[in-house]
């Protein structure tokens, strides 16, 4: 158990005041009673009041923060797919050319850079050198661009690698060779025989990617001062905001479970081998 409580501060509260606060938040009850209370709240879809944001309920905080995190997360995921998938196939198709080499170097670089370093570089380039985009804050599309880019690019690099590997083996597989031998145009070959196979490992990667995006957003949200779930998650633990940290944990679990489930269902549809296991 973490030591220290939500009302601890440098300036100690008067004893009477502290007792009142503890009673208001039911901290004077036994642990079992408190456990029962939060379970009961949970069944009603409630988490109770936040300890740190007095007078604000955890549900309200989550309702404010969730859309911001979702926009950031899905934006980054979409960006990663749009960039990673086509470049991966291109790189495999142009194997051992200059295009392939430069794309691979770029992806290694993006994978090696921690996202806060990437964010620093992006801010110094786009906010200070070019003065195109604000360095932080929220409120408009312009504020979304840099965080989405910094969160999405490392995943784009990962998807690029997966797509390239799978596309390479698809390009050398028997069906592709046969299709080419039968004179199918190269574009059709890629579309019919390479692209669908490339999707399989990428969809399988979406589950872990979601988890990665959730944790990655902690850092990105902090760097860009975005009021999403990630920064709340860290701060609620530091503040000993019990209700808020429980609320976010439940929400994260639900998000992760749902998305992994959908990824699995999708995977079964894409890959007949998985379906045949039934």
């Amino acid at each position: 158990m973490a030591r220290g409580g939500p009302f601890d501060q440098e300036r100690e509260l008067p004893t009477e005041v502290l007792q009142q606060l503890r009673a208001q938040y039911h901290l004077d009850e036994s642990i079992l009673q408190q456990y029962y209370r939060s379970l009961e709240n949970l069944f009603h879809g409630e988490f109770g009041p936040s300890f740190a944001y007095r007078g604000v309920s955890v549900s309200d905080i989550l309702a404010d923060a969730l859309p911001i995190s979702l926009a950031l997360g899905f934006g980054a995921l979409l960006l990663a797919l749009l960039l990673g998938l086509p470049t991966g196939i291109l790189s495999a198709w142009k194997k051992n050319t200059k295009t392939d080499a430069s794309l691979r170097t770029l992806s290694s670089l993006l994978l090696a850079l921690p996202n806060f370093v990437l964010a620093g570089l992006a801010i110094s380039l786009f906010s200070f050198t070019l003065e195109w985009l604000p360095p932080a804050g929220s409120g408009g599309i312009r504020h979304q661009i840099l965080p989405t880019l910094c969160l999405g690019l490392p995943f784009a690099a990962q998807i690029f690698r997966l797509a390239r590997n799978e596309a390479l083996s698809a390009l050398q597989s028997a069906p592709t060779r046969t299709a080419r031998a039968k004179g199918l145009p190269e574009a059709k070959v890629l579309q019919r025989h390479v692209f669908p196979r490339t999707l399989v490992p990428i969809v399988a990667f979406l589950g872990p990617a979601t988890a990665g995006i959730l944790t990655g957003s902690l850092v990105i949200e902090q760097v860009f001062a975005l009021p999403g779930l990630g920064s709340h998650f860290v701060q609620s633990a530091l503040n000993r905001d019990y209700t808020l940290s429980l609320g976010i944990t439940v929400l994260y679990t639900a998000l992760l479970g749902t998305l992994t489930f959908f990824a699995d269902v999708l995977l079964a549809r894409l890959d007949p081998r998985i379906q045949s296991l039934r």
């Binding site: 906010s127 932080a136 902090q222």
Partner: peptide, 18 residues
């Protein structure tokens, strides 16, 4: 009044005139 956790972020906002 903006809530900005990271002092570096706050500095960036200041230097860019935001």
């Amino acid at each position: 009044f903006l809530t900005v956790e990271s002092q570096f972020t706050a500095l960036n906002l200041f230097l860019s005139g935001e």
